[in-house]
Computed example of a mutant assay.
Amino acid sequence: MGVALIVPAVVCAVLSFLALTVWVPGQQDRYEHYQAAGPCPARATAQERAAKDCLSTWYFTVTKVTIKHAGKASHYTARLEDPDDASWHSTVDFGDPGPLLDTLHRDDTVTATVWRRDIVVLSKDGVRQNTSDAPRDELQFGTSLGVLAALLAAQLLVFGAARLVRPAAYAPFVWDPYGKWLAWTDLCAGLSVGLASVWLGIPWWTVFVTVPAAVTGVMALLVRYERSRRQLASGIAPRKTPRPA
């Protein structure tokens, strides 16, 4: 049983390493390159645009707008067509219906900003909206997933090692209640802190502190509750911290 816990611990550790050393830095580099990109030279070829990593401007016709509000399954898209080449068309995804998408209609002409062959911005009459392909400075959630994977790896490793070292007496490293509580606390804290950090605009590097702190705080409360419950069940009154006179 110990080996069965250590194997997924190694998998979680590898996923954490990849998230924190490859995925998050890659997203940060992409955002910085996008912020530094300038307009492409006039009459630049497709090869020149790719080489210069610049922003090109195109004009497309809207053929269809889709706005479906369905909670997590919401869809906000615009289907575009090149007026000079009817064979070219593309569907652009958005994270929100506004401020531009919900004002568009069929046959509207929109200005598209293209970067690295992705449409990153649509605009019309001075109203702009980023598409889902636009790089964003939102590294908090990816960082929280990396930290979450690291915490799960640590938990699985400790619980697995305890079973290997002391097969007959590995308490308190058991699933019920502490292992279950810790696993759920890791998941809930990692996801909620990551999302909250994105919404509040908290710097991404603070996630390295806030996620472990949240897990520690919640687990301390749960352990205290469990001890009090056991004391009451055994007829022993829980200890009270004396107050200074």
Score class of each variant (00 low, 15 high):
Met1Lys: 13
Val3Cys: 02
Val7Ala: 14
Pro8Gly: 10
Val10Ala: 15
Cys12Ser: 12
Leu20Ile: 06
Leu20Val: 02
Leu20Ala: 06
Val22Glu: 01
Gln28Leu: 00
Gln28Pro: 01
Asp29Asn: 10
Glu32Ile: 04
Gln35Tyr: 01
Gln35Ser: 11
Ala46His: 01
Glu48Leu: 04
Arg49Val: 13
Ala50Trp: 01
Lys52Thr: 08
Lys52Pro: 03
Asp53Asn: 14
Cys54Arg: 09
Ser56Tyr: 02
Thr57Met: 07
His69Ala: 07
Ala70Leu: 12
Gly71Phe: 03
Ala73His: 13
His75Arg: 15
Tyr76Arg: 07
Thr77Ser: 14
Ala78Leu: 08
Glu81His: 08
Glu81Pro: 08
Asp82Phe: 13
Asp84Phe: 12
Asp84Lys: 14
Ala86Glu: 09
Ser90Ile: 14
Asp93Cys: 07
Pro99Leu: 03
Asp102Asn: 14
His105Asp: 11
Arg106Leu: 06
Asp107Met: 07
Ala112Leu: 09
Ala112Val: 13
Val114His: 03
Trp115Cys: 00
Arg116Phe: 00
Asp118Leu: 07
Val120Asn: 00
Val121Phe: 09
Leu122Tyr: 10
Lys124Arg: 14
Gly126Arg: 05
Val127Met: 03
Arg128Asn: 04
Arg128Ser: 06
Arg128Trp: 01
Gln129Trp: 05
Asp133Trp: 05
Ala134Asn: 13
Pro135Asn: 00
Asp137Ala: 08
Asp137Val: 08
Asp137Pro: 03
Asp137Arg: 10
Asp137Phe: 05
Gln140Glu: 12
Gly142His: 07
Ser144Thr: 07
Gly146Thr: 02
Val147His: 02
Ala150Ile: 08
Leu152Lys: 01
Ala154Phe: 14
Leu156Val: 10
Leu157Met: 15
Gly160Gln: 09
Gly160Ser: 10
Arg163Asn: 05
Ala171Gly: 15
Pro172Gln: 11
Phe173Val: 14
Phe173Asp: 05
Trp175Ala: 09
Asp176Trp: 15
Asp176Arg: 15
Asp176Phe: 15
Tyr178Arg: 15
Ala183Phe: 08
Ala183Leu: 12
Asp186Ala: 03
Leu187Ala: 10
Gly190Lys: 01
Leu191Thr: 14
Leu191Gly: 11
Ser192Val: 15
Ala196Val: 11
Val198Arg: 03
Gly201Ala: 02
Gly201His: 07
Ile202Pro: 03
Val207Ser: 07
Phe208Ser: 04
Phe208Pro: 02
Val209Tyr: 00
Thr210Trp: 06
Ala213Lys: 01
Val215Gln: 01
Val215His: 00
Ala220Leu: 12
Val223Asp: 04
Arg224His: 09
Arg227Phe: 04
Ser228Ala: 15
Arg230Met: 11
Ala233Tyr: 10
Ala237Gly: 10
Pro238Phe: 04
Thr241Cys: 02
Arg243His: 06
Pro244Asn: 07
